[in-house]
Design a protein around this nucleic acid. Sequence first.
DNA 1: TTTAAACTCTATATAGTTTATAGGCTAAAT
DNA 2: ATTTAGCCTATAAACTATATAGAGTTTAAA
Lengths: 152, 152
Amino acid sequence: MLTKKSKYGLKALLMLAEEPDRRPVLIADLADRQRLPRKFLEAILLELKRRGILQSKKGKGGGYFLGRDPAHVTLGEVIRVLDGPLALIPCVSQTAYMKCEECLDEQTCGIRLAMKDVRDATARILDNTSLVALNTQVARARRRARSSRRSS
Amino acid sequence: MLTKKSKYGLKALLMLAEEPDRRPVLIADLADRQRLPRKFLEAILLELKRRGILQSKKGKGGGYFLGRDPAHVTLGEVIRVLDGPLALIPCVSQTAYMKCEECLDEQTCGIRLAMKDVRDATARILDNTSLVALNTQVARARRRARSSRRSS
DNA sequence: TTTAAACTCTATATAGTTTATAGGCTAAAT
DNA sequence: ATTTAGCCTATAAACTATATAGAGTTTAAA
């Protein structure tokens, strides 16, 4: 499962990626605009800051803003920071490999073979989708939604 | 994450799929062969039986055996039974759709767009891999492992 | 230089899920 | 009858997810 932590974090990042000139935005603003729990979001943004994805400015006129070009921040990176590895099972994780305790022979474990395929497919999608790319898709979906409403 | 429940269940099913003539196999046997916790496995097999994937025979000479042709039991089906929906987020699940509480417009939610792609890719793999197919892959991997050991 | 705005950090709480274990009950075979 | 083996219910420890509270610190601006 994608946790709410990742979901909230991604929603905030997608908003920040649309902010002109990477202007600082208040936590409270981000929370209100998408109805996210304020205090929880606070902790999430802090974590993203520690990982360099976000930066912040304290005091009046402060807020959070992206630490890097949003075209180079991928969903995969964000989800790994907030939720941990993409792999459904630790023995196929590229970033946090761990051996299964009970597994007798990892090289020929069927479950591992299948889960490796799933991990690769997932990573291919998430590591190739940036915040900018996703916002573009959203904009396109919005236009489609509007025009189909018009024609109905 | 794939839970241990699904992992154990799949391991048991893969063993049963190799049993000639679908002969009944003891829970204890299945548990011992792959070092799975016996009582936990018991509960898992029972659940698979309720869903028709397994059948059982009580009393002396009893045990569990497959309820259907293992070529028609897919990983996707088993995982859905034991772990629930494949989708990483309920709003893109085909089998257990649920609206997100805080989402303002589902039709144009970026996270949903991306998670839909991931779900589809995952389902494409898991719903098209049967127990038989996976065991075949495992056998092939074993041959490869053996022959590369020989040549080294 | 004071004040208010805003992020930072630590502690705590609650609920739900996962991963089991124990033990008695029931059905079947011999 | 007796033994074997699955069936069922209850229980529980450990972990994770989802927050909230409140004091502390930094900064901009009046």
